[in-house]
Simulated scan of single mutants.
Amino acid sequence: MMENQNKDKALLEAVQSHPFFHGVEVGTALSLLKDCQFKQYDKNEILLYKDRQREGLILILEGFVEVYVENEVLEVVQKGEMLGFSSIADFLGFPRRTKDEVTVESRAASKVKVMYIPFQVMARRWEDPFVRDYLLTQVAVRLRDVYGSLAEQVQLAREFGENEVFMLRVQDMMTEKVITIDSHATVMEAAKKMHEHHTSSILVMEDGALKGIITERDIVGRVVAKGMLLTDSVSLIMTKNPITISRLAYYYDAIGSIFTNGIKHLPVVEDGEIVGIVTLSDLLRKKNENVMKTIKQIEEADEMGLPTVKRAVYSIVDTLLQENIPIDKTLDIITNLYDRLVVRIVHLAVENLKKRGMISQLNSPFIKWGAVVVVNNLC
């Protein structure tokens, strides 16, 4: 008995401040809650199916929910907001135009707790002018936001030369497993951790707050090249106050931020907490897998396959130009690919010299010079 009372009290505290329960006495609120259902969903579980009749509203108590059509996300509903406003038409008795009418689905974008509010509870609250005005206002706001979101994505897609509207959000592309290290740790500890987890970056934290980020390039350029000690603090080499992005931002927001700021890693922050990280590689992989395929092709190429790599790089140049990617960023991408190609050629040259027993007769700079000549001939 005591357990049920505590449960009712916890549920009441969770929803009593919501406008739907505005001005309701405790006894009445508990009576309404008994007719509602409380459910939990794991990430990617479906809350509302497109082919099932709506039977009420859903109040989000915790987490995020995506509303989508054929995997194109229309909006993200957060804690305190409601789902299923199209069911108000059913509640008011307006028939659907066709049985096969296209409708949306909803899925959990994280672990989610919700409360189902059936029509019978809606009927008891509909007579309250405050509640009725709140629900109708929410319908109008949601309609405005959906139209605004669609218009924004169409505009951004056109600016980037995209033929199809790309409505992916950062949370659809980010890596949720984030590797972190304390700000008092050493460079050696950071490097070991990055190696163990096969990651190209690590976030520097202090008292639970993000203070900086370290990448492989930082370790090479700020430690190796400048002769810093591996026992030095990571705070001396990290990029302080890194650019971050929201999990609800769109694909174009992320790639625009990366191109504008000249970075390759974007920590994803929500309510002050790190929830993931998205990289340039993630964005290119999602948008255009040709770059990643070419990188793999370069790293696996033998002497006979090097000319095909050149054609693959040309194809990427064509793709980036067609998509109106800024020319300086296009050059960065292509330069990176050619750098990888040089490294591969050097590796092949060294292996060839080892086989012929000539490696001791040549020094490293000469080998690199020969590799560059080969690259120039290929280009």
Rank of each mutant, 00 (worst) to 15 (best):
V69A: 08
E72W: 02
L74H: 07
L74A: 10
E75I: 07
E75C: 07
E75R: 08
V76H: 00
V76Q: 15
Q78K: 13
I88A: 01
D90P: 02
F91V: 12
F94A: 14
R96P: 05
T98F: 14
K99M: 09
D100A: 10
V102E: 11
T103G: 07
V104Y: 09
S106A: 15
A108V: 01
S110V: 01
V112L: 09
K113P: 02
Y116N: 14
Y116M: 11
I117G: 00
F119K: 13
F119Y: 14
V121N: 05
V121P: 00
D128A: 07
F130G: 04
Y134N: 04
Q138M: 13
V139K: 03
A140Y: 10
V141G: 00
V141R: 04
R144V: 04
G148K: 09
G148P: 02
A151F: 07
E152C: 11
V154R: 14
A157H: 03
A157F: 02
E159M: 10
E162K: 12
N163D: 15
E164Y: 10
V165A: 10
L168K: 14
L168Q: 12
R169K: 15
V170C: 07
M173F: 03
I181K: 00
S183Y: 08
T186D: 01
M188F: 05
M188Q: 13
E189C: 00
K192C: 11
K193Y: 11
H195Q: 09
H197K: 15
H197Y: 12
T199L: 03
V204M: 10
